[in-house]
């Protein structure tokens, strides 16, 4: 199985450990992982700011980098969703369509495609799981609390396989953290308040780590935790699943 690893720009630049964990995890699970080296960004920062019309260059580059693999896997629900919903390229629409179908967020890839039922990972800590909105309501990697439907959570299902890990309950299981791309600076007051409230929910339930399938949320929450000099840390779900594998 030839898998192309799509590492979002901010993960590449700020959280290489999460990308390394994703790569190692996929390899240990038997995937032939390729990293197309000319990749940059999915184009979401422009698109969500109202500049989707400027993403043509990004899209073209993305199609060039990621065509021809069995799957494209990404350790970010948000970037995956953007590709799934908005990747189009003039003259290469067939390839773009193919990629839109083959792109997976890491945890959904592990659960739905690799059908991972066991892991030899261990992580003896109390962990709060933050669902990113794009992963949750966009990709449906877990059931959202708004719907009258059977609950499930792909990330939680995987975390349950990790030795020693205890998932803490939350008062608001899927309230948004307030990152929101450029929202985090344009609407700084509300963004920060939303992040503070999410962090407080995790802390009040005894979390030692906050994990998520999306680092953009975690970057925001980490910024708040560090400002508060908190001992609580953020960690991408891949790093937990890859821990002492």
């Amino acid at each position: 199985m030839r898998v192309a690893l799509f590492v979002p720009c901010y993960v590449d630049q700020f959280y290489p450990k999460a990308a390394i964990a994703t790569l190692e995890l996929l390899e240990k699970l038997g995937c032939e992982v390729h990293y197309p080296k000319n990749q940059t960004c999915c184009g979401q920062p422009m698109a969500n700011s109202g500049y989707e019309h400027l993403t043509g260059g990004c899209n073209n580059l993305f199609v060039d980098n990621f065509s021809g693999y069995d799957y494209v896997v990404c350790p970010s629900g948000s970037c995956t969703l953007h590709i799934k919903e908005h990747l189009h390229a003039d003259g290469k629409e067939d390839q773009a369509t193919e990629i839109r179908k083959k792109v997976y967020e890491l945890t959904e890839f592990l659960v739905d495609i690799l059908r991972v039922k066991q892991l030899s990972a261990s992580f003896p800590y109390k962990v709060g799981l933050h669902h990113s909105c794009h992963g949750l309501r966009g990709l449906r990697i877990a059931q959202m609390s708004e719907l009258v439907a059977e609950p499930f959570s792909k990330p939680a299902q995987l975390l349950d396989l990790v030795n020693g890990l205890e998932l803490v309950p939350l008062s608001r299981q899927d309230d948004c953290c307030g990152f929101g791309g450029t929202f985090c600076v344009v609407e700084e007051a509300v963004s920060a308040k939303m992040g503070k409230d999410r962090v407080a929910d995790h802390i009040s339930h005894g979390a030692q780590y906050i994990t998520s399938a999306d680092l953009s949320c975690l970057m925001h929450l980490e910024g708040i935790l560090r400002r508060q000099n908190s001992d609580v840390k953020v960690i991408h779900v891949a790093e937990i699943l890859n821990n002492s594998l």
Partner: peptide, 23 residues
């Protein structure tokens, strides 16, 4: 002056990017 910094720390830049590590 960046609004991000009002109530949040910046992410710490690592020594190398994933791309650099991978190369």
């Amino acid at each position: 002056l960046n609004p991000w910094y009002n109530q949040r720390e910046m992410p710490k830049a690592p020594d190398e990017s994933f791309g650099e590590w991978y190369a």
